[in-house]
Design a binder for these strands. Structure first.
Lengths: 225, 225
DNA sequence: ACAAAAGTGTTTGGAGTACACCCATGG
DNA sequence: CCATGGGTGTACTCCAAACACTTTTGT
């Protein structure tokens, strides 16, 4: 137990954020590298203490802005992790959030005083994580897997305009399995989830694809898969 | 802001529990009546502060034991409510839990020093609730509705042995709609969720029904509805 | 005998799944 | 002209939903 507990004799509240992006046909996670010697070699989720004068969600936003220069991303609370010994530096209950950013939106990675670095890591090959952060990441992937099956959240991981294959690719990455192109297209069209734009993709080495938009900007609950 | 904030200059962690039971063909919620004059006329969810030396879940169990004499009930974390002004007495983040108890299990309702009373209230006619507790209750019902559709949690609300109609009745209460007897039975039997015992119900004014047991004591994830 | 809940099958429509070929473009 | 990803339809199977009568018991 550290000075935090000694000083206050109560439980502190922090947040941890699992921030995901789809890039280069990989699902990637934002991690920071703490300077603290006890965590040498390990990476951690971005996050930090909740101030008394800010809501928990505002606290997440503040830390994301400070560490990654990000505003207006999709945020969803995952779970509160409340084991006594989960943080060796003190009694901290951590409220985990999931953040999704579209591939197009560039994040400004900022290395502040307390961190050696901050960078994106493919989910399939994560380094060793500090605290119970691996557990939090696993949990978040499970949640996301489930949620793309009954909502249109996936839109938060795609740019404004996208091709049909980008959409299906994002589903396949998250679910970790291949989908049938024709059946998937049938369902997405039947649900009127997306609508074609008048443009086509450019730069692809081959046949240009139609670009689509989502029909709704709001999160919708609809059975998809 | 109260002394809690002034003294610690940080955020406190508490829990609130939505404890449900099925009784008299009603879904009922356990509420306490606080003595504090500022909450006059309002009821509240049972719960309390998390001590630094106990996990959040252990804290829920402790408060349930103290206030309702309950042990070994189904507990599931719902959501952490973290708005700054949610509690007029101080900066408190509350982690809400759902608790399910089988109708047979008798709860010893204990009125301790800080409460005027504790009792069960049908969900369909709740009194005015303190804080953001109505929001928490609404959220918990939504969660339960979803969860009985893809798990066997419903067992936590039923006695060891139960009739087919008790089971279907519990589903109907939570979903708030009638189900088809034959289709429901077909599905439940196909899933091997329950097995018949050698006994029949007694005391009913009419034809006795077969009693069933759940085939598994563990929470199972299976598409049910 | 009658009132009340228990128990039990069939039909039909819609959704999910499996499956293969031609097209447009850049190099 | 060739390589690469883009785009499209049909047939079959299975599950969901609609639907009504007979049985057993207590009074």
């Amino acid at each position: 137990m550290n000075k935090l507990n000694k000083r206050f004799d109560m439980t502190a509240v922090a947040t941890d954020v699992v921030m995901l992006v789809v890039e280069d046909k990989e699902l990637k996670l934002l991690l920071i590298k703490p300077k603290h010697p006890e965590l040498a070699g390990k990476w951690a989720l971005p996050g930090g203490m909740v101030n008394p004068d800010e809501s928990v969600e505002d606290s997440v936003k503040r830390h994301l802005l400070n560490k990654a220069g990000v505003k207006d991303v999709y945020l969803e609370q995952l779970y509160a992790f409340g084991e006594v010994e989960r943080d060796p530096f003190g009694r901290v209950v951590s409220i985990a959030y999931l953040a999704l950013v579209p591939d197009s939106q560039r994040i400004k990675l900022m290395t502040t005083g307390s961190y050696e670095g901050i960078s994106w890591h493919p989910i399939s090959q994560l380094p060793e994580l500090a605290y119970d952060h691996q557990k939090i990441v696993d949990y978040s992937i499970e949640r996301l897997k489930a949620k793309i099956g009954y909502t249109n959240v996936i839109k938060e991981l795609l740019p404004e305009d996208f091709t049909f294959n980008q959409l299906m690719g994002a589903y396949e990455l998250i679910l970790g399995k291949k989908l049938d192109k024709r059946n998937f297209s049938k369902k997405i069209i039947a649900l009127k989830l997306i609508k074609p734009t008048k443009n086509k993709s450019v730069g692809g080495a081959h046949r240009p694809a139609l670009l689509y938009k989502f029909t709704s900007k709001d999160l919708k609950i609809i059975e998809i898969l």
